[in-house]
Amino acid sequence: MTPPNIPDPASDWYLSDNEPGHLDGHTLEELSDYLDRGRVPADLLIDTSPACQIALASLERLRFAMSSLLQDEADRADVRDDSWVTAIMDGIVRDARSGRDIPLEHPSAHARLFVTEGAVRGLVRAAGDTVANLIVGRCRLDGELTTPGAPITIAINASIYRGKSIPALAEQLRQAVAAALSAHTELTIKAIDVTIQNIYLTRHDSENEQDTP
């Protein structure tokens, strides 16, 4: 460690080990903490000190450089082969989220037929994915799923692209889901509630479809 310098306004502040002498009584750590707090509550002494402002700008540059550094390293490594993704995905059990078993009727006393809640959720997602300009998020099956004939409400979160009609897309989604459920399950659907939780600003892929007015 170098011994503390005598304050010298002519020298660059960052070369000095006497920070308060160069930063109007503040330390670099204090300024860093101030930045971490989002400069809230505002500190008038820091905000009006040119020396502090220069140091804060420098700290922000460093922070930005740090985040770019990691991103650069990630981008550089990204071009390599895909085996790491495969390794991860292989470790995931496909039907790990099967949820409740929903009974299906059968005349035989020996028969125990079920469709899993997870399979029904997958079905709802797949049906929702066929509706253009919309993407399904969470899907919940509310009701006594394990009791045959019990009324079930399907609650679906979805995001849509900006400029698309919310009611029209919600209705399309309801119809697609209702059709899929009646084709594959014996559920008594009381309602399909659609919540539009997010509106996409832009769509990144082909813009060949016309926006709904």
Binding site: S108, R112, F114, G118
Partner: peptide
């Protein structure tokens, strides 16, 4: 005797 025969649909796709 047969006790039960269980068939569970775990995915539809």
């Amino acid at each position: 005797p047969i006790d039960t025969i269980s068939v569970t649909v775990a995915s539809i796709d």
